[in-house]
Design a protein around this nucleic acid. Sequence first.
DNA 1: CGTAGGTTTGACTGATCTCAAGTTTGGTGG
DNA 2: CCACCAAACTTGAGATCAGTCAAACCTACG
Lengths: 243, 243
Amino acid sequence: MPTNDKDSFEQVIHKLDRLASLEEADREAMRSLPFSTHIAPPHHHLLRQGDVETDCFVLLQGYACRYKATRTGGRQIVSFHVPGDVLNLQHMLLTRADHSLQAITEIHFATVSAADIKQITQERPALRDALWRDTLIDASVFREWVLNVGRRTAKARIAHMLCEFVTRREAAGLGSPEQYPLPMSPAQIADATGLTAVHVNRMLYDLARDGVIHRYKHEFAITDWPRLRQIAEFDATYLHAAA
Amino acid sequence: MPTNDKDSFEQVIHKLDRLASLEEADREAMRSLPFSTHIAPPHHHLLRQGDVETDCFVLLQGYACRYKATRTGGRQIVSFHVPGDVLNLQHMLLTRADHSLQAITEIHFATVSAADIKQITQERPALRDALWRDTLIDASVFREWVLNVGRRTAKARIAHMLCEFVTRREAAGLGSPEQYPLPMSPAQIADATGLTAVHVNRMLYDLARDGVIHRYKHEFAITDWPRLRQIAEFDATYLHAAA
DNA sequence: CGTAGGTTTGACTGATCTCAAGTTTGGTGG
DNA sequence: CCACCAAACTTGAGATCAGTCAAACCTACG
């Protein structure tokens, strides 16, 4: 676990390195980006649907999610994020936020000017490839979510969402699927899967009864990773080796 | 309606023009891209989940969709496409197809080498912005679909999907929402909304009874556009003025 | 220790699915 | 041009998964 924000910022560079073959000059260009770091408590909004935003946020520590709201009060989480993720790269070219951005746990994040990021993508083709590829993988993940919410049963949906999260967490170097508890609450899982908190709770109970997860107080962890993947029909190819 | 494929190709250029301010040199660069044109019948697959693809497809005439399949036979359409859309720009940087691509009506399309497209994005920043912006809007649309499938009732889901389609069709210069019938079948609407064909049919019946759409044989058209938008809670800002 | 907010449980409801039997449609060949 | 066929669409009846409502219970926090 990185101990300071400067070290944490290296995670993004490391991630981009996996997405395209960067040269040392590319890494240096990233490091030289002016950024400021911040800490936000759980539930803090970094951005709200409709806002005009000219900064990009890089998650350094903790977990966050993006969500959209329906006029009638419905809430749908559209993605979860792990350290190293750029949370809103789209603001490089799209100024109006079509969704909100919220901290799940306490988070550390960096803000970088969208214009600065745009600038380095002009100057450094490898960074352009890596960042563009990142946004394309983002889109691929959304497609999988449409499938997940549209065509899977409640239990499979939940399982799939958990599989994706821990796979991405592991890719970010934060431990194997069974190693750490999951940060999201039943209510958040409900909002991510298009279910109600009540029903999520029942399914979580089932998964616990079958020994797939273990629950203790307001936390839970995966105890049978192979079985969870099986329940979810999880196939990580849609992550395009981002994970 | 363009009468030949060369004229049709101008639609993409026109679309990119709306996404970024192109110079004449940018438009020329697009026109000079080597491409070949093809015709495919309804249901024809341009691409299947898992394929390795190095060409990009540009839709010139007709309608197409992208979908993902679940191992157990479920099918989820993740987007519909109108003439002028690049159907798989992601293959510029991602080689493995994470979804299938299928014609809905008879279509005319052009294939352009992904490498050529990548090349012009290096040489012409305005084209890079336009194309990148296009992929970001694509992602925004997927997010809206996650919300649609996850948090709306059957009728609103269907209405929303129809609203988006006709809005995009109009943006492509193909007539106002009420002007032409819709090309998709109940079964396809079902696959796009995460419902069954049986239930879609019932909802379509309701919408027809309320005078929102008109059905005749295996076609239907919108007859009350304001009411349809209202049922759908449709707000086009997520299309980021692509439409 | 008291309170507020989220979680859990139970009983009931209802939206959507499933299954299966018609019906329409568009294509094909005589 | 008409009869036939396959495929898709419709319709109805019954089943079920997930939602709603409401009460009780934690848990964290002041």
